[in-house]
């Protein structure tokens, strides 16, 4: 698949715009999901994910083909989500969450007081609950936990994507795991 993407990128660089649509459809779910987890809001996630692809296209010449395209793309997307979160008004976040997550908040309010029944990880509710717990983490831990366990990047790649030293990535992933351990202990 890497070869396929590499080929497409070279075509895009040569000015073949239509080749970019294969790149977008290949990464759309991953990038959208990443933005959604970072922002916790579907509308914003779509907005930012689109912007990420557009930026990637506009700046395609600055991408070095010898490097991994996904790392580069995630870096663009992550920077955009961080910008968006910074620009948010403090009260906007609460509104957005209810609107975007389809009543997830009501559900999680329940969950925080009551124990979740069953151990079926497969169940959709549990999956949502986990998603919510991840989204409650501070952004700097959340991004790393997501990149590591949901997008399966190595710690070194994560340090490239987020442009933070490897040591910092390690510290943050430790803290993120501890925080989630406490949150998910009763599941």
């Amino acid at each position: 698949m890497d070869q396929f993407i590499k080929k497409k990128i070279i075509q895009v660089k040569k000015g073949d715009q239509s080749a970019f649509s294969d790149v977008v459809s290949f990464y759309q779910n991953k990038i959208y999901q990443h933005c959604y987890r970072m922002l916790g809001n579907k509308h914003e996630a779509e907005d930012i994910a689109q912007e990420a692809f557009i930026r990637a296209y506009v700046n395609i010449d600055s991408f070095d083909e010898n490097r991994k395209f996904s790392t580069w793309l995630y870096r663009i997307a992550t920077n955009l989500t961080i910008d968006r979160m910074r620009k948010r008004k403090p009260d906007y976040h609460l509104d957005a969450e209810v609107k975007g997550t389809d009543g997830l908040d009501m559900y999680t309010q329940l969950a925080s007081t009551e124990r979740l029944p069953g151990e079926e990880v497969e169940s959709r509710e549990l999956q949502r609950y986990i998603h919510h717990e991840i989204s409650q983490l501070p952004a700097k831990y959340r991004s790393i936990i997501m990149l590591r366990y949901l997008e399966e990047f190595s710690l070194k790649e994560i340090s490239e994507i987020l442009d933070v030293p490897l040591g910092t990535v390690k510290t943050r992933i430790h803290r993120g795991r501890e925080a989630l351990r406490k949150r998910l202990r009763h599941v």
Partner: peptide, 23 residues
């Protein structure tokens, strides 16, 4: 548990939207 978190998919027509917005 983290690995089993809900997976979401991009909205329908996402690629077309992006392609339409490219300069």
């Amino acid at each position: 548990l983290i690995r089993s978190a809900e997976r979401v998919e991009a909205p329908v027509g996402f690629t077309e939207n992006v392609m339409g917005k490219l300069p």
